[in-house]
Design a protein around this nucleic acid. Structure first.
Lengths: 148, 148
DNA sequence: CGTTATCTCTATAAAAATAGTAGACTTACA
DNA sequence: TGTAAGTCTACTATTTTTATAGAGATAACG
């Protein structure tokens, strides 16, 4: 299971992707629209800002914007920031590798080999899907068709 | 990440699979061999027993045995018992479906559709891999080769 | 028959993770 | 200069994880 926090983060980003480009969206608006506790969302967006996913403007007329284009922000990238490693075992994590202290002979660990397959399959999906894929899919599909 | 408990359960089962058929293996032996805290392992095995994965014999010469053949016990089955649902979202769980109370319109939820793919990919691996695949793989591979 | 080795069951507990809440502070616009 | 926004840190309640403790049940064996 992914955490509630990760779900909030992904939904908030799709909300930003849906907004007019260059127009900041306020935390309160996202919170209301997506039914996310406002103070919790503040933390999440701040975290995403620190990781270079979004930018913010302070004061009146302030709010948040995507830093990169929505179709370059992957689900995997966001999950790593919010929930930590994608891998089901510490010894399979790319970004936070840690040896399993109770098992020796990592190369021969059969459990590990099974979960390596799981990790691969998971990453394949998560890093090939972007926020753009999740945001206003109907409109995107239409545009895609019109441009074809 | 799967829990430590799940890792213990899978390793304990491979230990049982490696034992001579019909010969009970004591909790203490598994605990020592696999470096699992004994009292914790007791709980895990008891749970697996209640779920019909293993059987036990009490008293002297007692211990645990697999109830089914190792090649019919899947990783997915065990993970469900020990860690709960495989699905990354409650609304995607087969065995413990729960509506996400903060999102409405489940059919249109794009987040859900992405994680549905993750769940499918994960299940494909976990339910096609058995304890036999993880137990003494070298010997099994050899036997396979000799039989080919 | 009773001693001992083994599993059984329930309760408890310490630590970590999760899901928030609170409030003082900073900045920018009008 | 007032006010509406984001910033930052700290705190807290709940749940989950990872065990540990100990009394009980049962089966073998001498």
């Amino acid at each position: 299971m992914i955490t509630q926090k990760a779900k909030y983060a992904l939904r908030a980003l799709t909300a930003l992707a849906d907004a007019d480009a260059g127009e900041p969206v306020m935390i309160s608006d996202i919170a209301a629209q997506q039914k996310i506790p406002k103070k919790f969302l503040e933390q999440i967006l701040l975290d995403l800002k620190h990781h270079g996913i979004v930018v913010s403007r302070r004061g009146k007329q302030g709010g948040y914007l995507l830093l990169k284009s929505a179709d370059t922000i992957t689900f995997g990238e966001i999950l790593r920031i919010v929930d930590g490693p994608i891998a089901p075992l510490p010894c399979l994590s790319i970004t936070a590798y840690r040896r399993c202290d109770d098992c020796e002979g990592e190369q021969n660990c059969q459990i590990r080999q099974v979960f390596a397959k799981v990790a691969d399959a998971t990453r394949k999906v998560l890093f090939s899907t972007t926020i753009a894929d999740a945001a206003q899919p109907a409109r995107t599909a239409e545009v895609t068709r019109l441009l074809a």
